[in-house]
Simulated assay, not measured.
Amino acid sequence: MSTVKELLKDITAKLDQYIPRASREAQLFLMHHLGVDELWLLTNQDTIVENTDELYKMVERRSKNEPYEYITNKVSFYSEEFHIEEGALIPRPETELLIDEVIKHYPDLDADIRFVEVGVGSGIISIMLALHYKNAKFIAVDISEDALRVAKKNIERFNLSDRIELRLGSLLEPVYEHIDYLVSNPPYIQDGIELESNLDYEPQNALFGGKVGDEIIKKLLDEVLKRDIKFFSCEMGYDQKGKISEYLKQTEFKTLDFYKDYADFDRGFTLIL
């Protein structure tokens, strides 16, 4: 048995050589294990904690660089909490900007329209858009059955099964309906690029986009033009703005609006035909 204070000190020491924010993650693990908030943790430093076996199992997993989110099966996105597990990409804060971009370019939140998301992953994009667009319907596609399983859990958690339909398939192959708005956070990292070791736990087919990296984005652009999809918002790599602009050079469209992420890197675009 140990006190909260002693546990925080011990977990921090165990994680310190492996991760950069050891003291903060020690707090997060203990809050998760005890089911308490930060205020409770700070004001109960001398409280005795029993049954710490599961807590230390989580710490051991984290010491091997397994992502915190996969260990706790929780991830925060756009101020909401979602279920996450291996098989689905862990949502990044910059992807919240993709939601903002859609709302910016289609401000009619009461519109009765059909969104399609390619690469649904954990479902966070379609779910957040469905919470904003109360009358919209969604078709969410992924090539991974594991990702669709995670997305299904989140969709059910938010009671959105009647508005978000999941389909297994590549890109837009399983979607035959008219599409009003296409949205995607596709794989866009160049094959062979060495990534941080914690990314080894994440699905590689959700990270790498081909020999150049932008191949999937270009395939989606081809579909947008071929199927006359009026709105397309997409996340991209920081170095792909020029390539995408060049790819659309001979195309007629109304606007091509790029946006930056929190670190001021180019991060995505909205194409309006």
Rank of each mutant, 00 (worst) to 15 (best):
P174L: 03
E38L: 14
A111I: 01
V102N: 13
L7D: 01
L129D: 12
V59R: 00
G268P: 03
K218P: 02
F208L: 04
A263Q: 12
D162F: 00
F253S: 04
E194V: 15
L182S: 03
S161C: 05
L34W: 09
E145C: 03
I143F: 00
Q17F: 07
W40Y: 15
K5N: 09
E94R: 06
K104R: 15
L199E: 02
I179P: 01
G35I: 10
M236K: 06
T52W: 02
D46T: 06
A22E: 09
F158P: 10
Y201K: 01
R157Q: 11
T52R: 11
Y262R: 10
Q240M: 08
Y259Q: 10
L34D: 08
T3Q: 07
Y188V: 09
R157C: 01
D180T: 07
I19P: 06
K243G: 06
L129T: 09
I127H: 07
P203Y: 14
V116F: 10
K57R: 14
Q17R: 13
V141L: 11
D53W: 02
R61L: 14
L207H: 00
E50L: 14
V59W: 07
K254H: 12
I244R: 11
K57P: 00
H32D: 15
K260T: 04
L8D: 06
L248G: 09
H132C: 03
L225P: 00
P91F: 04
F269M: 12
L55I: 01
E194K: 14
V4H: 02
E165C: 07
R114K: 10
K64R: 15
D142H: 09
V141M: 11
P67K: 04
I19M: 08
K243M: 13
V49L: 01
R92L: 12
E145D: 15
K241P: 03
S76K: 12
E101N: 15
R114F: 01
L97R: 12
D10C: 09
K260R: 04
E80P: 00
G242M: 03
D261E: 04
H83A: 02
E165W: 02
L171E: 12
Y238G: 02
D228L: 11
A151W: 02
L148I: 08
L148K: 09
V59N: 06
A111C: 03
E202Q: 07
T72N: 08
M58E: 11
G268D: 05
C234T: 03
Y133C: 05
I229K: 02
D108M: 04
E101D: 14
Q240I: 02
L7M: 07
L97T: 12
A140V: 08
Y56V: 05
P91W: 13
I193L: 05
S245W: 03
T3W: 08
D53C: 01
A130K: 13
I125A: 05
T47E: 15
P186A: 05
E96V: 08
E38G: 00
Q190H: 01
D16Y: 06
M31C: 13
F158V: 07
K211Q: 09
T255D: 14
K104Y: 10
I193T: 14
T255Q: 07
V118D: 01
K57L: 10
R167G: 08
S245C: 09
I71T: 09
A206G: 10
Q250G: 03
F231L: 14
H105V: 07
L55Q: 00
I189S: 05
Y262E: 10
Y133D: 04
K254Y: 15
